[in-house]
Design a protein around this nucleic acid. Structure first.
Length: 571
RNA sequence: CGGGGCGUAGCGCAGCCUGGCUAGCGCGCGUGCUUUGGGAGCACGAGGUCCCGGGUUCGAAUCCCGGCGCCCCGACCA
């Protein structure tokens, strides 16, 4: 590609609307332009990056034995009703009504379509396993699109769905996708962490996410530097709390303390001048009709997933004010486990049991109890790990501590099981003639996010730095003076040579001053620059610059192509 | 959905509080001359529904009311 034939509107100044590094640089480098909230145009250079990523994804999916399809983005709304996910997606759906007054949606994902497709066109275990994938635009009316291309209302996703006749088969399909994902992200040059995840509203059992560590990431995960255990914050299990220090004082005396106008953890902590970790929060919940008092240390957060799992998947919801009043006999904000009415099950997080000289609500307006000792002053019915993991928490698999990180989710793999095949009646006949639901897996990759995550990870003060695998062009040929025919012809010659060995160059043939060309090339992040200027004029030498390292070297014509190839291989 | 902020030339902004001449500055853009290895200099020039609608006023970018759009923080996020 010749620069003059493309559209690469670079910006010197930082656009006001952009905050995140990737957003700023993708705008400045002329990769994207915003059309509306959460909707971006990819200009030629940006689209080339997307296409590079897609090509890698496609190659690896095909290598893993998946077959590509293309499904509609426009759905009749009934399809989501059938699977029961209309509620689950709710406001996130972009809905429309057509000229015949039929209700439709723009597809947020495609489990329903693929499941009904397979239901209607496959019938025998002999045809299994099968894995179908597509690369499609998904639509979700995000509450808050942000960070440029990282969270948008329409985005490209590679989604794959596997259909197996057995759990063992699913495991094989899942492992194959897992391996393919590693190859894909490796080839994209990303540094990523694979974390255990909750399968959540998708249903199913095993689930892992591929994360790129980044402070602007929407997801949080913990990782143990000793053993490598890593898990999404929603999922992360905790090791046992560190052993209790031997008590240097006898159990304190339990007493009521007036705490007017102090209800929240912060207020009580400040009022009584005790750290939040000495407070015991009492959260009242309703679970399938019975009341729960859930005890969590003041500086911790309840993990509802863990609580629900502990209760064998019961639907749990915070108790309403009326119920709280009934249980505690006090206004909201003063609940405590001491002396609670008998039919309330008390579930305590493990860490609560180590609290010494604790503070809880007194089940009485404007009053807290101090000097609370677990087991002595109250006895939980159950003690379990039910809180959200935090930084420096003990690892569940070794003696190490876990660190908390923010991450950008670039891919996920799920073992769905039979959730969708059951809901949509998708069955096959096994070898004995029995009807069985397909055992499914689903596997997603956020195409646009790969680009943004790469920028967040690798960009520097001068601009983007692309790994060669997804660079819009691998090599930029800079002709520093287009008026000089000798230089220009040499530049074109290099450009053609690179083309002929399949290297994918861009020729900066613009009538710009050298400074602009250098700055733009750095901003765009081409892995290698070939500079034809002074050195060529005087000594017939080409100058090579490596974007990532800043390294430069002069080479003679016959060494040029091999040297470029060598550098690209080393990056 | 709650909180904060913004909307003036392609981009970044000033002007608004305290209404008043032809709405200004930098970058970018066009033409000419000079310049040519890290975003050149000079000169000339083009480019504006001041987000939209209504109101107040002799007069509105500026004040008032209503709306729309966008950004940031939070909540949310299969």
């Amino acid at each position: 590609m010749k620069w003059s034939n493309s559209l690469i509107p670079t910006l010197k100044e930082v656009p006001a609307e952009a905050e995140a590094k990737s957003h700023v640089l993708m705008l400045r480098a002329g990769l994207i332009r915003k059309l509306g909230s959460g909707a971006y145009t990819y200009l030629p250079a940006g689209f080339r990056i997307i296409n590079k990523i897609i090509a890698i994804v496609r190659e690896e999916m095909d290598r893993a034995g998946a077959a590509e399809v293309l499904m509609p983005a426009i759905w009749p709304i009934e399809l989501l009703k059938e699977s029961g996910r209309l509620e689950a997606f709710g406001e996130d759906l972009i809905r429309f009504t057509d000229r015949h007054n039929r209700k439709g949606i723009l597809a947020p994902t495609h489990e329903e379509v693929i499941t009904s497709l397979v239901r209607d066109n496959l019938s025998s275990y002999k045809q299994l396993p099968i894995n179908l994938y597509q690369i499609q635009t998904k639509f979700r009316d995000e509450v808050r699109p942000r960070f440029g291309v990282l969270r948008t209302r329409e985005f490209l996703m590679k989604d794959a769905y596997s259909f197996d006749s057995s759990q063992e088969g699913l495991q094989k399909s899942y492992d194959a996708m897992y391996d393919a994902y590693c190859r894909i992200f490796d080839r994209c040059g990303l540094e990523y962490v694979i974390v255990e995840a909750e399968s959540g509203a998708m249903g199913g059992s095993r689930s892992q996410e591929f994360m790129v560590q980044s402070d602007i990431g929407d997801d949080k995960y913990v990782e143990c530097s000793d053993c490598g255990y890593a898990a999404n914050i929603e999922k992360a299990e905790l090791g046992p709390p560190p052993p209790q220090d031997p008590k240097d004082s006898p159990d304190p005396e339990l007493r009521e303390t007036p705490t007017p106008n102090a209800q929240t953890i912060e207020e009580v902590s400040a009022f009584l001048n005790v750290p939040p970790s000495s407070l015991i929060k009492t959260l009242l919940y309703e679970a399938d009709g019975h009341a729960l008092a859930v005890l969590i240390r003041g500086d911790h957060e309840l993990n509802e997933n863990k609580l629900s799992n502990l209760l064998e998947g019961a639907d749990i919801s915070p108790a309403n004010d009326a119920l709280i009043n009934k249980i505690t006999g006090a206004p909201v904000g003063f609940a405590g486990p001491v002396g609670l009415a008998g039919d309330v099950e008390i579930i305590a997080d493990s860490s609560v049991m180590n609290v010494h000289n604790g503070v809880t609500g007194a089940n009485k307006a404007d009053t807290h109890l101090t000097g609370v000792t677990p087991q002595k002053d109250f006895k939980p019915d159950r003690i379990a790990d039910i809180r959200v993991a935090a930084d420096s928490d003990p690892c569940p698999q070794c003696d190490g501590k876990m660190q908390m990180h923010h991450g950008i989710e670039i891919g996920h793999v799920f073992q769905l099981g039979t959730k969708y095949s059951d809901a949509l009646g998708a069955t096959f006949l096994d070898g004995k003639g029995n009807e069985k639901p397909y055992i499914m897996g689903c596997y997603g990759i956020g195409i646009n996010r790969i680009a943004a995550a790469s920028v967040e990870t690798f960009a520097d003060n001068d601009g983007l730095v692309w790994p060669p695998g997804i660079a819009p062009w691998k090599v930029a040929v800079l002709c520093l003076n287009t008026d000089n025919t000798q230089l220009f012809e040499a530049a074109e010659h290099v450009y053609n040579q690179l083309l002929s060995v399949g290297i994918d160059p861009i020729l900066d043939d613009r009538e710009e001053r050298p400074g602009s060309k250098f700055k733009d090339a750095d901003l765009l992040g081409f892995p290698v620059k070939v500079i034809i200027g002074r050195g060529y004029e005087k000594k017939g030498l080409y100058e090579l610059q490596v974007r990532k390292t800043g390294e430069t070297l002069d080479v003679e014509e016959d060494k040029l192509i091999p040297t470029v190839q060598k550098i690209l291989k080393s990056l």
